[in-house]
Amino acid sequence: MNLSTDLKHRVVTAFQRYVANPVTRRLPLQTVLETTGRVSGLPRATPVGGRRVGDSFWLVSEYGERSQYVRNIRANPRVRVRIRGRWHPGTARLLPDDDPRARLRSLPRMNSTAVRVFGAELLTVRVDLDG
């Protein structure tokens, strides 16, 4: 990773953590991914964009393995996803062999554009929702 990518990651992450996420995760219709903190063991809620397709929810992480929620998934893949105000438990799968840019074309346009603009190490994540 070069200096400009690292700086971009730090700026975007700080903005999301301290400004955008605290507001958007409270919006009733915002999709939220809840992981378990790998160190604290506490629930961690992250607003995400993606799409439910059948019994799966698809999203693309902007910073791949550097994203805190991806690191939490590595430690414990059991998650919950709030979709349209309703929580769904499931198991998250990291899909490094999936083409995240192609995946973004099948996801909601506004979020996909932001992920492409601000992201640097895209990674597809699929959550297999429990029945």
Rank of each mutant, 00 (worst) to 15 (best):
R80P: 05
V12F: 01
R78Y: 03
P89L: 12
D130P: 11
I83G: 02
L42K: 13
P22M: 02
A75Q: 06
D130N: 13
V70Y: 00
L29G: 09
V127I: 10
R93A: 05
R71D: 04
T13L: 05
R84F: 15
L95T: 07
P47S: 08
P89G: 12
A75E: 03
V70W: 06
T46Y: 15
N111S: 13
V70M: 06
A45S: 14
D128W: 05
G37S: 03
L95E: 12
R17C: 07
E121L: 13
P22C: 02
N2W: 04
G90H: 05
L27G: 05
P96H: 06
V11D: 01
N76S: 14
N21H: 12
R51C: 12
V19A: 14
V70L: 05
L123W: 06
V79F: 02
V39I: 10
P100S: 00
T91M: 04
T124M: 05
N21T: 08
T113Q: 13
F57P: 00
V125N: 02
G50V: 11
L123N: 03
S56W: 05
R126G: 01
V127P: 11
R103L: 09
P77N: 12
A20Y: 05
F15E: 09
L123M: 03
R74H: 08
R51T: 08
F118L: 15
L95I: 04
Y18A: 08
V12A: 10
L95F: 01
S112E: 08
V23G: 09
L33C: 06
L27A: 14
F118E: 08
V23P: 11
G64S: 07
E62Q: 15
G37D: 00
R101Q: 10
H9F: 07
P77D: 11
A114C: 04
R25T: 13
R82T: 07
T24G: 00
S56G: 01
V19P: 12
I73P: 01
S4N: 09
V39P: 10
A14M: 00
L42Q: 15
L29Y: 01
N72Q: 04
P22Y: 00
